[in-house]
Each structure stands twice: as structure tokens, then as C-alpha cells.
């Protein structure tokens, strides 16, 4: 600690805050995609992150794939889990009440978590960083190489999604079915398929976040719930359904958490994001960047 100047420590906390914040942002984007199409909040979102990390562990350690291949394999497999979740469960719950829907996605999250415990046990697993090498030292603060990868992965996800929703026919169709499902159905957009796609996509994005974070913070079967909650915090804070809001809000949460751990109490660092989540829900449920009018028009 001695060699650590105040400035360097501050920088260090900022960097680790931004790193974890970007992960929360990815989780938040996962919520947004499903919410935009279905108005469902998927309580199993955090489990996708956990599964991504653990599948990557499986592919590198058991199958001995290189880390880059393991990344894509984990993303694809988790995407399939999202696909299966929609196909096998959500589709059957079309006429359920909101309460039932909530319980259903919670039940799925319990099942995913339980299965993960079944396969991987209760121990945390690590994953090699995407590229090896010593951390960069910037003004006395260490930046792990993996942190750079995390930013790169998130940037890639955001760019791809932007293209997907703005340019591709599928993406536009998804936005249309989000906007007005019955009208979309009338012009021939297969809304059911869009919902299926949203679950798959959102699981894949969660998995990408999970694989990226595992080299830094390890991964174990029960990490999903908290990651999910914090990601939801970012989603709400950024205005549900808004991608760039989620990005900014994720980083705000990550920073708050990192500073709390650094300067106040590491035991309460998990509570910080949750308190922010509650404050956002209670006093600005339309998000930092949303307008109250727009929020009123939504169903909530």
C-alpha cells in the first residue's frame, strides 16, 4: 500500500470499476433485448453470465480448446440454452400472469444454477486471460491485459448490435415487434421467432460477458443472481430498453462499487449497486436518460 500514491489508487479503482461496469452493461443489454421484444424481465439473465464463464472453463480445461475458440463455443452453447429456455418454457407461458412469468424465469434461474452446481461443483474456476503478458502500468496503476479484452469485447458487442438493429432486416423486424406486436404480426413479421431470437441473443451476450470476466474474477455456480441484479440495476438506471443508457449506467455502477470497496467497506460493495438500483427504481424508474412521459406510456 505504501508505494501506492493516492492518485494511483484512485486510478486503479477507476479502472477496475470501469472494467466490471462494462460487464454490468453487457448484462443490462441482455435484459434490454428481451424486454424490448417481450416486456418480460428475465430473472435468469445472470445465470447466462455464469454459464458462459463455466462453459468456457469446460472448453479450455476438459476439451483443451484454445481460449479464443472456447470463447465462441461458450457463447454459442449458452445461446442455445437461451434458445431452449424460450422454446421449452417461455413459449408455454404465453397466457401466464405477470406473477407466474416472474416465478417461471426465477425457476429457470434456479434450475440453471442447480445444474451448474451439479456439473461443476461449488468451487470457483479460473480461466487463462485471452492473451498472456504482464499488466500495463499507467501512472502507477496496473491495467490487466484482460481488462483491455473486456472493453474490446463490449465494444464489439455494442457495434454489432447497433448494426444488427439499424441495418439488418431481422433487427428491424425485432424492433418493430417490440414496438407494436399486433401491428408487426399483421405485416407478416413472425413475432414468435423474434422472441426466440431475443432470448438466444441475450443469452449469448450474457455468456460473452461471463467468459470475459472469468479470467479476472473467477466464476462459480452461484454468481449469477448478483450479477443479474446488478446488471438489472444498470438496465434501469440507463432506462430500460436503451442500449447506450445501459452502457453509461453500467459504468456508473461499476465505479460506485469499486470506490466503495476501495474506500469504505469491501463487505458492502455488493450492497452499493443494489442501493443504487432501489434509488433508481423508487425515484427515477424511467432511468437517468429517459423522460417521465415516455416511461408513462410503457406498461409499467
Amino acid at each position: 500500500m505504501d508505494s501506492f500514491t493516492f492518485g494511483a489508487a484512485l486510478l486503479q479503482y477507476t479502472i477496475s470499476g470501469l472494467t466490471i461496469g462494462v460487464i454490468y452493461a453487457l448484462v443490462a443489454i441482455g435484459y434490454n433485448i428481451i424486454y424490448n421484444v417481450t416486456e418480460i424481465i428475465n430473472f435468469a439473465q445472470g445465470e447466462f453470465v455464469m454459464l458462459g464463464g463455466l462453459f468456457a472453463v469446460f472448453f479450455t480445461q476438459t476439451i483443451q480448446l484454445p481460449v479464443s475458440a472456447a470463447f465462441f463455443a461458450a457463447v454459442i452453447v449458452t445461446g442455445c440454452v437461451g434458445f431452449a429456455m424460450e422454446r421449452l418454457v417461455i413459449r408455454r407461458a404465453r397466457s401466464s400472469t405477470v406473477l407466474s412469468l416472474i416465478i417461471i424465469t426465477i425457476a429457470v434461474s434456479i434450475l440453471l444454477k442447480g445444474s451448474a452446481m451439479f456439473w461443476w461443483g461449488k468451487n470457483p474456476y479460473s480461466l487463462p486471460a485471452f492473451s498472456s503478458g504482464r499488466p500495463f502500468i499507467i501512472a502507477g496503476a496496473a491495467v490487466q491485459r484482460q481488462a483491455i479484452w473486456i472493453f474490446a469485447v463490449s465494444a464489439l458487442v455494442v457495434i454489432c448490435l447497433t448494426f444488427f438493429f439499424r441495418r439488418s432486416a431481422y433487427g428491424k423486424a425485432m424492433l418493430a415487434s417490440a414496438d407494436n406486436p399486433s401491428a408487426a404480426r399483421m405485416v407478416g413479421i413472425p413475432v414468435r421467432q423474434m422472441i426466440l431470437l431475443s432470448f438466444t441473443l441475450s443469452a449469448a451476450i450474457g455468456a460473452a460477458a461471463g467468459v470475459s470476466i472469468t479470467p479476472i474474477s473467477l466464476m462459480e455456480y452461484d454468481r449469477g443472481a448478483l450479477l443479474g441484479l446488478k446488471g438489472f440495476g444498470a438496465a434501469v438506471l440507463g432506462g430500460l430498453g436503451q442500449f447506450f443508457g445501459a452502457l453509461v449506467a453500467g459504468m456508473v455502477l461499476g465505479l460506485a462499487e469499486s470506490f466503495c470497496a476501495g474506500y469504505l467497506s469491501s463487505g458492502y460493495k455488493d450492497a452499493v449497486a443494489l442501493v443504487l438500483l432501489l434509488l433508481a427504481l423508487f425515484f427515477k424508474p424511467e432511468g437517468l436518460f429517459g423522460s417521465r412521459e415516455a416511461a408513462k406510456l410503457k406498461k409499467f
Binding site: 416472474i102 448478483l226 441484479l229 450492497a271 442501493v275 432501489l278 427504481l281 423508487f282 409499467f300
Partner: peptide, 24 residues
């Protein structure tokens, strides 16, 4: 404040509150 929310939002708010109590 929480019960001004509905549905999924209310569920998340109470869930978050429950986790906070557990942390405390």
C-alpha cells in the same frame, strides 16, 4: 416508494431489498 411500482419492477425492487438485508 416500492409499491408505486408494478409487476417485474416491484419484484426486482423487493428482491434487491431482500438481498441488501441479507448482506447487512
Amino acid at each position: 416508494p416500492a409499491l408505486r411500482l408494478k409487476g417485474h419492477y416491484l419484484a426486482m425492487a423487493t428482491l434487491g431489498f431482500g438481498v441488501i438485508v441479507h448482506i447487512v
